[in-house]
Amino acid sequence: MKVLKTIVIAWLLASSVRADEILVITGINTSIKAVSSKQIKNIFLRKTLLNEDGSSWIPLNLSLEDPLRRAFSQSLFGQTPDEMETYWNEQYFHGIAPPYVVQSEEAMLRLVADSQGAIGYILPCHLDKRVKVIYRLAISEPLNKGCNK
């Protein structure tokens, strides 16, 4: 009984993590080791289109409703994804598309691992060997989100 209780508690802890940071990731083959908060902002706002070695950044986003996307947007830009839509309207008029949207963190991991220049973000519990962390974004309010990909 005690063993079962321990397993249930461990499972609950593992599946619902209170994350206090978001990891910004790229593929392991990119030469970028670390970037600043300002650089991350400009990449996801698509103000910076090229990285230092001259290849394109391909920023990726989760869907508008995803709690991780909302926490990322709020922490990085101080605005919700809905508030950012005004900015993207203006960029659309200038021919700049917003970051591609993927449906899950696993999809993000796969694209970041496979595509040169792709950059995304995940919860720490989803980090694996396919990608590397180039920035740790602290979030003001811990994020209650399951660790299911």
Binding site: I58, Y92, G95, A97, P98, Y100, Q116
Partner: peptide, 25 residues
């Protein structure tokens, strides 16, 4: 690098063809 992303249309963002790096709206 982008060919794995599908063609998509979003109202107010046009038709995006990632494999050709083309957007029409």
């Amino acid at each position: 690098a982008e060919e794995s992303l599908p063609l998509s249309y979003h109202w107010g963002r046009g038709v995006s063809v990632p494999a050709a790096n083309l957007n029409i709206g």
